[in-house]
Simulated scan of single mutants.
Amino acid sequence: MRDVQNSSDMRGIAIQKVGVKDVHLPFLIKTKEGHFQSVLAKIELTVDLPQEFKGTHMSRFIEVLSDWSQKPVSGREMENILTDTIQRLNAQSAELAIRFKYFVEKVAPVSQLKSMLDYDCSFTGKLAQGGKLDFTMGLAVPFTSLCPCSKEISRYGAHNQRGLMRVNLKYAKGKFIWIEDLAALMEAQGSCPVYPLLKREDEKYVTERAYENPKFVEDILRDLVLALRALDGVEWFEIHCENYESIHNHSAYAAHVETVGIC
């Protein structure tokens, strides 16, 4: 049977990325406790295509992903997945993005009731044949913010709202941070963390906690910058913070990108 996609192409155009996108598969993500969490992952896997080849072998991408979906994955396994892809596709480079919901147990501050909070996470890796893995971990964490200005000028309270902070970071080879630890570090920078389950005594606590810890979106971003700088092994990070304002029909927003040590 003739293999059309493996035939020659005479247009002289190399393609930087070709592959599969929006593939949904169950994946196993390593947890801090040494177990694994089964997640529904949304995946993009691509390779480069030299100018002389008409097409790539799309079925091989699914073969690679199907094999790896049965094995626990963290940042350390990304290099193996990409190496496997390069070898099976006879490529010079490969890129992989895995996006998924990750659940962490939260304990209410007073009642101590337990519930699960979901976080949007991503693992992204790039690898050239014989090169070093370029790995980025992404995490989005909700938080509560309370406006310092509103507290200062109001007699009866201050407006507060839910916000979302997003971090993408890269760390040095041999270094690692668990999703659970990064989530805790991030949510500590808001006026108060968000909890899925709160009883009345918990609601009193988080309301007063936020009131005693007012922060602008700029404050939250700057505190998060300092926290990420202090992490061992972090080489680069990107932050986006957004307050879904309760008294405006728009959001307050701040962003920052930094290569650690060259700020």
Rank of each mutant, 00 (worst) to 15 (best):
A252G: 08
R76S: 04
D22T: 04
Y211W: 15
P142T: 09
A252T: 04
P26F: 04
L228F: 03
E95P: 01
I29N: 00
S111E: 02
M1F: 00
K21H: 12
P26I: 11
I86E: 15
L45A: 10
T124F: 13
S8N: 06
V141W: 00
L146N: 10
L146W: 03
S150A: 07
E201Y: 05
V4E: 10
R209C: 11
V225E: 14
I262D: 01
E95M: 11
I29K: 08
Y205S: 02
V257T: 13
H159R: 07
S145N: 03
R155W: 15
K173N: 04
S8D: 06
V4F: 15
V167Y: 09
A128R: 15
Q129K: 06
L169C: 08
L65I: 07
K175Q: 05
D219H: 09
D84Q: 12
V64Y: 08
L185S: 10
I29V: 14
G190F: 10
F103C: 08
K175D: 11
A140Q: 15
M10E: 00
E208H: 14
E245T: 13
T136N: 06
L65S: 03
C121E: 02
K204D: 10
N6A: 06
V217S: 11
N80E: 14
A184M: 13
E33N: 04
A188S: 05
A184F: 00
G130E: 13
F237P: 00
I29M: 01
A158T: 08
A210W: 15
L96P: 06
Q37V: 02
G19A: 01
L231E: 12
C149N: 00
D67Q: 09
T56I: 02
L25C: 03
G163M: 14
L224S: 05
M186S: 07
N243E: 12
H35N: 07
H57S: 12
V110Q: 01
E201V: 09
Y102M: 14
A158V: 06
L89C: 05
K170Y: 04
I62E: 01
T136V: 08
E258R: 05
V47P: 08
S8W: 12
R2Q: 12
S7N: 07
T56H: 06
L45D: 01
H240N: 05
F103D: 09
V225G: 01
E52Y: 07
A188P: 09
Q92I: 01
G19D: 09
F36T: 11
A252Q: 02
L96N: 03
G138D: 14
T46G: 08
L226Y: 11
D84V: 10
V18Y: 01
V206Q: 10
A172H: 07
V4P: 13
E242M: 10
E203K: 10
K170A: 04
